[in-house]
Simulated assay, not measured.
Amino acid sequence: MNVEAFEQWRPLMMGLAYRMLGEVHEAEDAVQDAYLRWSQAEGIEAPAAWLTKVVTNLCINRLNSARVRRESYAGTWLPEPVSTADAAFGPMETAEQRETVSLALLSLMENLTPAERAVFVLREAFAYPHREIADIIDVTEAASRQLHSRARKHLGDASPRFDPDPTDLRKLVERFVAAASEGDVSGLEALLAEDVIAWSDGGGKVTAARRPILGRNRVARFVLGVVAQVEAMDLDFEEINGRPAIVGRLHGEPAIVAAFEASNGRIQGLWNVLNPDKLQRLSHPTSPSGHLWREKE
């Protein structure tokens, strides 16, 4: 099978692999492994179905080893943030599809078994019927339904209470940034849900909170501490993992991504990725017009 035929399916495969693995380089490796099998195969009549089956099962195998690595990770492990301003990570047309690539839901999916995660992603992000999912992961249709039910139960009330309107979320984050830049604790608290949680991922490479921070007052004061570190950065709004997020760059190099989830006009969750290994692909702004503030002269 030729390269051109494979390339037309690459965004679909990357979207699937990234949602399964939460890491771009792992997703790229899985897609490359799929290509090697593709290049040696003959007579593939349904390329999309064939590739979906191969990539899904490659990712299931990778998740088993990834779990061991993440258990020894320094501090909180968060998914690798990606720019979704283009179509490089598969379907993003509906709110449900965008939700399945959010840092919030990808983080929660770490609690699922590889099989549960596969069924959840195939069903929720790609709308596969259980009959086809069963064939993809080699189980019965009844087992596929049961895995999907268990996945939804495990996520349960913990699944993100997202604000479906990106414009509203961006306005909320703009108010959040303004309050933070002014050192306004009460102003920040007014924008945060009572049970707000902030996570940080430094990977042991940069200073970051090792444990989640819970509660309006504690998160507000944590944010002010972060602001003291990022004031010298260029901060821009960009579409990260299907949501408006803040990307901070120091001398052109990405140093932090702050992603948000909100409901009823208040911020419910804050995800801060600082591990430089996870930020390398964000070296250049994807939306310069989204500028918040510039490095002080």
Score class of each variant (00 low, 15 high):
Arg123His: 05
Arg123Ala: 08
Glu124Arg: 03
Ala125Arg: 00
Ala125Ile: 01
Phe126Gln: 03
Phe126Ala: 00
Phe126Cys: 01
Ala127Thr: 00
Tyr128His: 06
Pro129Gln: 11
Arg131Gly: 00
Glu132Gly: 07
Ile133Lys: 00
Ile133Trp: 00
Ala134His: 01
Ile137Phe: 08
Asp138His: 09
Asp138Ser: 06
Val139Tyr: 11
Val139Cys: 09
Val139Ser: 02
Val139Ile: 05
Val139His: 04
Ala142Ser: 14
Ala142Glu: 04
Ala143His: 13
Ser144Asp: 09
Arg145Gly: 05
Arg145Ala: 04
Arg145Val: 08
Gln146Leu: 10
Ser149His: 11
Ser149Glu: 04
Ser149Gln: 05
Arg150His: 05
Arg150Asn: 08
Ala151Tyr: 07
Arg152Glu: 11
Arg152Ile: 14
Arg152Tyr: 14
Lys153Ile: 10
His154Glu: 07
Leu155Pro: 07
Gly156Ala: 02
Gly156Ser: 05
Gly156Glu: 00
Arg161Met: 07
Phe162Leu: 13
Phe162Ser: 04
Pro164Ser: 02
Asp165Ala: 01
Pro166Asp: 00
Pro166Phe: 02
Thr167His: 15
Asp168Leu: 05
Leu169Phe: 06
Leu169Tyr: 01
Leu169Met: 02
Arg170Ser: 02
Arg170Glu: 07
Arg170Ile: 01
Lys171Ser: 11
Leu172Tyr: 12
Glu174Arg: 12
Val177Ala: 14
Val177Trp: 05
Ala178Arg: 15
Ala178Ser: 15
Ala178Gln: 15
Ala178Tyr: 15
Ala178Thr: 15
Ser181Met: 15
Gly183Met: 06
Gly183Ala: 09
Asp184Gly: 11
Asp184Thr: 06
Val185Asp: 09
Ser186Gln: 15
Gly187Asp: 07
Leu188Val: 10
Leu188His: 08
Glu189Leu: 10
Ala190Val: 14
Ala190Ile: 14
Leu191Lys: 06
Leu192Ser: 05
Ala193Leu: 08
Ala193Thr: 03
Ala193Val: 06
Glu194Asn: 05
Glu194Gln: 14
Val196Glu: 00
Ile197Lys: 12
Ile197Trp: 10
Ala198Ile: 02
Trp199Thr: 08
Trp199Leu: 10
Ser200Met: 14
Ser200Gln: 14
Asp201Phe: 06
Asp201Arg: 06
Gly202Thr: 13
Gly203Phe: 06
Gly204Phe: 10
Gly204Val: 03
Gly204Leu: 03
Gly204Ser: 03
Val206Gln: 07
Thr207Leu: 13
Ala208Phe: 01
Ala209Cys: 13
Arg210Lys: 13
Arg211Leu: 14
Arg211Val: 10
Pro212His: 08
Ile213Glu: 15
Ile213Tyr: 14
